[in-house]
């Protein structure tokens, strides 16, 4: 059973502030979905390899060739707080 505190902790890991209402709704939802997920445990998967990719291939490469980068102003065009060619962020606490 997922509790309110569990939801708050997971929301912290995901760096998402939740409103009181959201915490309530999501606690119920998460429990519902985990109940659904629990049904999988009745399926025998002994020795079954996991499907991790949408496609079954390997060794896809590019050559080590330099391609054009974005011009600096394009790189920063969507920046919420650009400064002197950098992306500015508030104080880093840790």
């Amino acid at each position: 059973m997922i509790t309110r505190d569990d939801v708050l902790l997971v929301a912290h890991w995901a760096r998402m502030e939740l409103s009181e209402e959201e915490v309530e709704v999501l606690t119920a939802d998460l429990n519902g979905m985990l109940q659904l997920a629990a049904e999988l445990h009745s399926i025998d998967t002994e020795g079954v390899p996991p499907t991790m990719y949408g496609v079954n291939q390997h060794n896809v490469f590019r050559d080590d060739q330099v391609a054009d980068s974005l011009p600096q102003e394009m790189a920063l065009a969507n920046a919420p707080d650009p400064k002197d060619g950098y992306f500015r962020v508030p104080k880093i606490m840790d």
Partner: peptide, 15 residues
């Protein structure tokens, strides 16, 4: 394909 050269303008070697 961005260059790895050291010392470019900030964010000048990004994509």
């Amino acid at each position: 394909g961005c260059s790895t050269k050291f010392g470019a303008d900030p964010n000048g070697q990004t994509c």
